[in-house]
Nucleic acid binder design. Structure first.
Lengths: 197, 197
DNA sequence: TATAATTAACTAAACGTTCGTTTAGGCCGG
DNA sequence: CCGGCCTAAACGAACGTTTAGTTAATTATA
């Protein structure tokens, strides 16, 4: 009954997520998405009010899916350094598994619609960010928790944002794309800094 | 005198840069750009072969403009830590001055055209990246120079990529948007790491 | 239990708008 | 009077969206 309806709606979203990630909001047309789903454009309007709603739902669903497991994992570990390693490890692996996650996140950051941003922040970003901020505070360091949380996230994420350029730049090696290499580098840099005496 | 009234290539590019940065490639139409320039859409095709060429030239010109001064500044300083501070300071200030620079960079990273990416990498990214990689090597640390360079860039850049979400997240303060605050945080974190004994 | 009513899910076709781009021609300084 | 720079107008294609009607399954009624 309503089970089948929900599944169809989710089918559309799950197909839309990688397409929105790769092509962007304007880059993916309702006709293109409909043809990928195997349906008429008008059928999409049976499930979603308009393209805006479809996009917002796709982004929300994508982030709920990807960040579902980390919250429980984060709460388990006690020792700060170990928690950092667990988080970085999860984050790197999650980004490495599919690039769509990172691309969608990057596209959302470029989104200039404040209302959409505000809703998405409350529903999906806030909880994970607070956990990372909490993790940063557990180090009892001199750093501002807010800035530190963003630094940790950015330090991991940027290695994936630049993946397409990185291979064209000097010093590039195949290992730089591997999850473990990035995870080790980031955790070590965060732990010790540059001045390793 | 009367020449000034005529629009040349650079006038168009300088108007296109912030518009492409804010709206994206698909988001900015030739008609919209033409009206901002104060000209007919067909006139744009007198200066540029098509929209692709206009976009590529705009991006190239933007990056040559923004990164013009740092190269000389980077070469001057000798002491590693001081050079890092100079670079981070310049980078933060450059990003803080106009957000278009960062937005355009972020959009370029999402660009999936390999040919455009390859050309832009050689003409504009390579020199600056090599300088940063060189800076990283001067610390004689255990870190991979390539990964370290990306980490340094990402650590700075991400504070600006997240500027629109950051204000909606807990722990946000007005000072977090200021150039000096970010620069101090990043240099200190890079220098010492989390475990400040 | 058989049948009528209702509903979800879809298709075919078209709406008006905007897109990138082209064509044909006009203006004006050198 | 030529060539660089522009305009007016239009091209076909693609865009988001709507309307009207069809199919199949579920629910209500006799």
């Amino acid at each position: 009954m309503s089970r089948l309806r929900k599944k169809n709606r989710l089918d559309i979203l799950n197909l839309a997520i990688p397409l929105f990630a790769q092509l962007g909001y304007e880059g993916l047309s309702m006709r293109n998405l409909a043809s990928k789903v195997g349906v008429t454009p008008a059928a999409l309007y049976h499930h979603f009010k308009d393209k805006d709603e479809l996009y917002a739902d796709a982004v929300s669903h994508a982030f709920e899916q990807k960040t579902a497991d980390i919250k429980t994992v984060m709460a388990a570990e006690e020792e700060p350094m170990k928690r950092l390693e667990v988080f970085v490890g999860w984050f790197v692996r999650a980004l490495n598994k599919d690039q769509d996650f990172q691309k969608l996140l990057q596209r959302v950051m470029l989104d200039s619609d404040p209302q959409r941003m505000q809703k998405l922040t409350k529903t999906t970003f806030l909880e994970l960010f607070s956990a990372i901020q909490n993790l940063g505070e557990s180090f009892k360091s001199k750093y501002d928790p807010h800035l530190l949380a963003i630094s940790i996230i950015g330090l991991v994420l940027y290695h994936f944002e630049t993946s397409s350029v990185r291979s064209l730049l000097p010093g590039s090696r195949a290992a730089h794309g591997k999850a473990d290499t990035i995870a080790r580098h980031v955790t070590s840099l965060l732990e010790n800094g540059l001045l390793t005496h």
